[in-house]
Amino acid sequence: MKAVARKSAVAVALSLATLFAALPASAQLANVPFTGAVTSTCILTVGIPGVLSPDAGFTSLASTNPGGLAGTVTVLSTGGSFSVSADAPSAFTTAPAGGDTGVDFFARYQGSGSTTIGDTPGTTPTPVNAGVTLLSVNLRAEKSSGTFPAGAYLTEVVVRCE
């Protein structure tokens, strides 16, 4: 019995050795390296342009008046130390005669998302965290004397990331 068992064991060992010898020798693990880099940058994307609407007395045109609409800008920051601000214009790009005289402009903004920003004067820069921040920008044009005459008005707020 012992001799038979020994012969069987030898036979199995030889069979296994033959089997493994027939397999390809290249079945090994290899690591494939991947590298990547994200540049530190800031992306501004305008969502909705603002709409100015007059108040009841026609002494102000503002996005916060009934019928007005705040402009929205999406800020995507990948890091770094970037700040956002919103510069009010100094004049209308387009206005009817008399509409652009004695007008003061005030821009304000607030933010939500990766950075929460309360109602802030446009000239005050606010640092933004990495991620996406949605800015809501309001503009107000006030006439120091008289009222805004009828016509089309156009101006622009500069939203800056630096």
């Binding site: 342009p49 603002g50 709409v51 045109l61 996005s63 790009t93 707020v157």
Partner: peptide
């Protein structure tokens, strides 16, 4: 500061001009 400026939309009364500045 080197600033890239663009005006993507022209249709509304309060346009948003974006300005991204590198220092």
């Amino acid at each position: 500061r080197v600033c890239a400026e663009s005006v993507p939309f022209n249709s509304q009364s309060a346009r948003m001009k974006t300005q991204v500045c590198g220092r």
